[in-house]
Each structure stands twice: as structure tokens, then as C-alpha cells.
């Protein structure tokens, strides 16, 4: 897999169709280690489906999906891929509602995953400290012992980002993290993601242009299942195709 050299995530000519409808159509994309990339595009462009393919939820009909230069992700399922180091935040915030905020983080912490391991697991000092750190980062220290169900929409988004941090994956796929947040929260989220990038490779999907601008990273525009344009936000915003299919509407 020479072609994937130097990449953390490499998609080449990927296609998938649902009942004849091509949701992803010849999609190619490459993320370098430590890179943060913003992905934008109209509703139904295939952004979420692309994440489904990377995380093993959807199997592509065609194309290569390579992780960390050599791992063919199309051969693995969700669990394997998560364990190899790809974490994901869903578009609709998905946390464990009947668990406390702290337990949500505990279950996400990298490490113990096997049935017998978790049956015997006692929380370690290191785990407790890490949970406190993350609680601080996502500003939910006060809500530590509350059920996740009782959080506001924005707080659930943050908790889910916290769960990603706890997982400490190599690649973070973040689907619409700012949805349902106030402007201030949106900017705080952008700051948080910027801090995470560098150590991690991050792909962020978002419709909020202010947010994308705040990230200040390379942007990929997706439309009808393939890449329409790529470059800085200003560059893609000036692209007539992008204006026509997305921004202009």
C-alpha cells in the first residue's frame, strides 16, 4: 500500500450505493497524521455516510479505505476499528443516558474492553484522575454525578466529545459538534478541537461557517458523494461550483 504512505486516513475512489442511489461516488480524500480537516457540504452530500464507511458501519461497494498507512478498514468491523484507534462523535449526540456523566467517561476510557476484564475491573487512581481532567476540559465537573439524560443538548455534545478524548484515539471523526449550541459554546468547541488536533488527526463535519472559519484549517467540500473542492475556506468559498451547489442556496 505504497500510495497511502505518510497518511493517517486514505480514501481512494470509494463508492457505496443504497438501493441504486449512489450516496458516495468515487470519493478520494487523504488526511496526514496530526492534521485537522473540516468537511462541509449540503444535506445528503454523504458526509455522515463517509464516516460510516471509515468506522466500519457501512461497507463500501468499491474503493480503498486505508488507516495509518497499512490497515485496510473495509476488512474490519466497528469494534475492531474503534480498538485500533478511530473514535467517532455521532451527528445526533449519542451518550449513555441512563449512566452518570462520570460513568459515560469511565466506559470510554482507553483500555479495558473484554467481558471478563470489565467484570473484575476496579476503578484505578489513574482512571479517576483522567476522568476529572476530562470533566474539567468539557466543563461538566458540576454535573459529574448527574444522569447524562439530564444534560442540555449542548452539554451532551460536549460529553460526547469528552468520551472521544477519554478513548484517546489516533483519529477523531466529529460529526456536527456545534449543532444546538449557543454562539459562545460553538466558539469554545472550536477552541477545544483545535487543542486536540496535533496530537490527533481530526475530521470535523459542520454546517456552521463561523465555526469552520474559527477552526482555520483546510476544508473539503463534499457534494453528491464526491469531493467538489478542497483548500482554505476562502478558496473554496470563492469556487463557483461550491457557491452554486452549497453556499449560494
Amino acid at each position: 500500500m505504497e500510495f497511502a504512505r505518510g497518511s493517517m486516513l486514505y480514501l481512494d475512489d470509494v463508492s457505496v450505493s443504497f438501493d441504486g442511489f449512489k450516496a458516495i461516488n468515487g470519493l478520494s480524500l487523504m488526511l496526514a497524521p496530526g492534521e485537522m480537516r473540516a468537511v462541509i457540504g449540503p444535506n445528503g452530500a454523504g458526509k455522515t455516510t463517509m464516516m460510516d464507511i471509515i468506522t466500519g458501519k457501512t461497507r463500501p461497494d468499491h474503493g480503498d479505505v486505508i488507516f495509518d498507512q497499512s490497515i485496510d478498514l473495509t476488512r474490519h468491523d466497528e469494534t475492531d476499528i474503534a480498538r485500533m484507534g478511530i473514535g467517532r462523535k455521532f451527528q445526533k449526540p449519542t451518550v449513555f443516558e441512563t449512566h452518570t456523566v462520570a460513568d459515560n467517561l469511565l466506559l470510554s476510557l482507553a483500555g479495558k474492553r473484554g467481558v471478563f476484564e470489565t467484570l473484575l475491573a476496579q476503578i484505578t487512581g489513574a482512571e479517576a484522575r483522567r476522568i476529572e481532567e476530562i470533566l474539567e476540559t468539557i466543563r461538566l465537573e458540576e454535573r459529574r454525578d448527574d444522569l447524562a439524560a439530564d444534560l442540555s443538548h449542548g452539554q451532551k455534545q460536549w460529553l460526547e466529545i469528552g468520551m472521544l478524548l477519554a478513548q484517546d484515539p489516533k483519529v477523531l471523526l466529529v460529526d456536527e459538534p456545534a449543532a444546538g449550541m449557543t454562539d459562545a459554546e460553538t466558539m469554545a468547541t472550536a477552541d477545544l478541537l483545535k487543542r486536540i488536533a496535533g496530537e490527533h488527526t481530526v475530521m470535523v463535519v459542520e454546517h456552521d461557517m463561523e465555526f469552520v472559519r474559527a477552526l482555520g484549517v483546510k476544508v473539503t467540500v463534499l457534494n453528491e458523494g464526491s469531493v467538489l473542492a478542497e483548500g482554505s475556506l476562502d478558496h473554496v468559498s470563492a469556487d463557483p461550483h461550491v457557491i452554486e451547489s452549497y453556499l449560494g442556496r
Binding site: 451518550v95 449513555f96 441512563t98 466506559l107 476503578i123 468520551m163
Partner: peptide, 22 residues
């Protein structure tokens, strides 16, 4: 146990549990 928490997680959000590597 922690496994019990995983079970409840599977009950309430099975896909989430998978994407966490369980």
C-alpha cells in the same frame, strides 16, 4: 460491575458501545 455498566450501555445505545470498542 463495570461489565454491568457496559450491559446497560448496550441496552440503551448498542451502536455507541460498538464504536467505543466493546
Amino acid at each position: 460491575s463495570r461489565a454491568g455498566k457496559v450491559l446497560v450501555s448496550v441496552r440503551d445505545a448498542e451502536a455507541r458501545a460498538r464504536f467505543l470498542g466493546y
